[in-house]
Design a binder for these strands. Structure first.
Lengths: 208, 208
DNA sequence: TGTACATCAGTGAACGCGCGTTCACTGATGTAC
DNA sequence: TGTACATCAGTGAACGCGCGTTCACTGATGTAC
């Protein structure tokens, strides 16, 4: 049955099953949410036996980690793009909005990312450790907008505050409670912008 | 065995099994976290057969809702206490800190509360609908600190921003990433206070 | 006050389910000579 | 170029598990007369 259903038959060896499994996991997340994401379901979605994934991942957690990591990379790309495209005084808000929009567009993936982070009690290293990590991008934007780079502690606090605020907004922006605010302000993005303004995270706001 | 192990034998009818089940669920959450919270485990912890809970809750979700609701009531109480005890200019930060501390002290319960809220895409009604709800407490504190009560939209934005910020901080405050900041600032509470200051949520900060 | 009976709140066994993981296996591939 | 063989990456059946839920039941309680 399976082998007759398409002209290009899948060969016995897959080629890049690891890749295919991560993609399958992403598809399940988008379609059915995090609770449907079992190892068996991923194998099923990839058209492979339930034992096959074990040649590529130690266990389920390792597969989930790979999915999460890809999510962080996507988020990184979205933030980088937003930063590059925005005008200077708006850069920080633009990054924040891109963050929240990513979480809103991929809610299940975002949950997997954060659940993994929570289990480890930390964000993945790539998010804050190297020089062009998202964390450093935000921090450097703070400086570019007038934060004092000499006060290291304060700069780190400012960056951390922005990150926490974005995460909180990302998780709550979908609540129905906010529907009439979005309507009054003319849409989701103006709403996010207004909330960020109230959070007063930009050094520009703080010096005003 | 069971009946001989204690002088006061549990009678066939429990008396208040509903109460006992919610308590048992809370105990499991504290001890083993949200993943261990199954209906069967709750019944087991309460010393009752797996079918017994069905005389008090329609299904597992209804039990979880009851647990979550009790959590929101505890959170409400903590926020109310913090507000009552703080001096006027510090009231808002004090409420925020009490919120975050609650989440940090009952992380598993907080997750159950938020997961339930996320499923419904809203906070429970009691949190924002009546006049002395936590939401209204925060909003009125905003006004007392100088926010303009005439601009209803702006006031609601300010309150919502504060809530999102607190939630984000609550979820992230435990990350190891922040350990050295806490150390540099002399503890968890000064750290939280500093982050909140950077979030610039108080109307006092905003007019300065 | 006593008794018949309806109702309530438990029991314990069973249902089917999907899960993560392991195992012995086999087909395909790559390499040494 | 051909062949023997090690290695790799799959299969499919099976493991034990705990889960949510249902069922027929029974012991305890409350009520009407």
């Amino acid at each position: 049955m399976r082998e007759s259903q398409t002209a290009e038959m899948r060969p016995y060896h897959h080629g890049d099953l690891r890749r295919a499994l991560v993609d399958a996991a992403r598809r399940i997340l988008e379609a059915e949410g995090p609770t449907a994401l079992s190892l068996r379901a991923v194998a099923r979605e990839a058209g492979v036996s339930p034992a096959a994934p074990y040649h590529h991942f130690k266990d389920k957690a390792e597969l989930l980690d790979a999915v999460a990591q890809e999510g962080w990379e996507m988020l990184d790309a979205a933030m980088g793009k937003a930063m590059a495209e925005a005008e200077a005084p708006d850069k920080l808000t633009a990054i924040g909005i891109s963050y929240v929009c990513f979480a809103r567009e991929h809610p299940a993936l975002y949950r997997v990312m954060y659940d993994a982070a929570r289990d480890k009690a930390d964000l993945p290293e790539e998010m804050h450790d190297n020089e062009d990590s998202p964390y450093c991008k935000v921090r450097d934007t703070m400086v570019a907008l007038g934060a004092d780079p000499g006060d290291a502690i304060d700069l780190e606090l400012a960056t951390s505050a922005a990150w926490c605020a974005a995460h909180g907004l990302a998780e709550m922006a979908g609540f129905k409670q906010f529907d009439h605010l979005k309507e009054a302000l003319g849409g989701e993005t103006p709403f996010l912008r207004a909330i960020f303004r109230h959070m007063g995270l930009s050094p520009l706001d703080r010096r005003r």
